[in-house]
Simulated assay, not measured.
Amino acid sequence: MRSIRHLLVFLMHLSLGTFAERFSNGYYYQDIVNGNGGMYFHRIRLLVESSQPLVSAVQGSNVTLPCHYRYEPELSSPRRTRVKWFWQPEPVHGGLQERDVMVAIGTRHRSYGDFKGRVRLRRSAPGDASLVINPLQSDDTGRYRCEIIDGLEDESITVHLKFRGVVFPYYSHRGRYLMNFHEAKEACEQQDAHLTTFEQLFAAWEEGLDWCNAGWLADGTAQYPVSVPREACGGTDLAPGVRSYGPRDKDLDRFDAFCFTSSIRGEVYFLQHHSKLNFTEAGEACQNDGGRIAKVGQLYAAWRFVGFDQCDAGWLADGSVRYPIVTPRINCGLSEPGVRSFGFPPKHLKNGVYCYKVRW
């Protein structure tokens, strides 16, 4: 009877294939008949990993969010898996739920929403499910989740995407502390930037940003960074840090703005002209050169990302006059690198001009 029972077990497994798979407790198991008619279990575990859980990129560029999957032990032949990517905006966007980015099964794939036509899987090697986004748009930052589904099993990892950029203070041409939240938001956007988040302002403070005027942030608070405590900036008794007025009335309260730019999609340059120009002439000169007068955010991006250094005051699109300094030197402003500002002089005065050309 024992030999007959062994024979029946052998024939059953032979009819199902030498290796019969099943799923239990988060693992795949292969039931293998040994030479003595018995069975032993060999479990195969799906692992999903990312070599870079935090990715920094620049708006307008492309980025790859790493995601790889493998099996332990390694399989001798590939399995059919489904790859899904999800995106969840930062809390500043309203704490929205996860949204579909794309799904892929074999060579078939589908992208969704604003990601349609901008995303693909890299697939540079077996198990590579990395997401490529090209180009990056202003609202793409947030939490991305890569999910690998194999039969009844699924595993996932999370990659956070943030923009590498520069924070700069901005105030109205009418004067200080004259913008409500909505006006500050619009002012930043007009300068090819966005209201900064607290995390971005804090990182800028850690890099040395010191500004004694409170400005709107994207979360509706008014804050300012202080590296050197002084009486005019909250007093000398307070430690350095980011000072906050907390949430403010977005319609009634008035502050400056802290803007954040992460765009290097074009070239900013100082126009070499035979004479200095008033504001109207400056705009026309840039147009005649095939470009347009540069915005404040574009000048800051050129200073930070490509090391633009020019010791010549020039008009910008908002009517301000500024110049970027990477290497401080005599007659070029203060001892620290930065974008120097002369504020908003009368537009009939003569200055140079900074122009901007889009790269195709």
Rank of each mutant, 00 (worst) to 15 (best):
N213W: 12
A193K: 02
L201V: 03
L201E: 07
N213Y: 13
P229K: 14
W216M: 04
N213P: 05
Q200I: 00
G208Q: 13
L209T: 06
V228T: 13
E231K: 04
L195G: 08
H194G: 13
W211T: 03
T197H: 05
F202P: 05
G220E: 01
W211L: 08
Q200K: 11
E231S: 01
T197A: 13
N213Q: 12
D192F: 10
S227M: 15
V228Y: 15
E206F: 13
E207C: 10
W216A: 02
A203H: 11
H194E: 15
S227I: 15
V226A: 00
T196Y: 07
A232H: 07
E231G: 00
A203R: 13
T197V: 07
P229M: 15
A203L: 12
E199P: 07
T196L: 08
A214V: 00
H194I: 14
T197R: 10
A232W: 14
C212K: 12
D210H: 10
A222I: 00
A222T: 00
S227T: 15
W205Q: 11
G208M: 14
D192R: 10
F202V: 09
L201D: 05
G215C: 06
E231D: 06
S227N: 15
E206Y: 14
Q200R: 12
A214D: 06
L195M: 11
E199Y: 10
A204T: 02
A203V: 03
C233D: 01
L217N: 02
D219K: 05
A203Q: 14
A218I: 11
L201G: 04
A222C: 08
E199L: 11
S227V: 15
G220F: 01
Y224N: 05
D210T: 04
E207Y: 12
T196D: 08
E207N: 14
C233Y: 04
V226Y: 01
L201K: 04
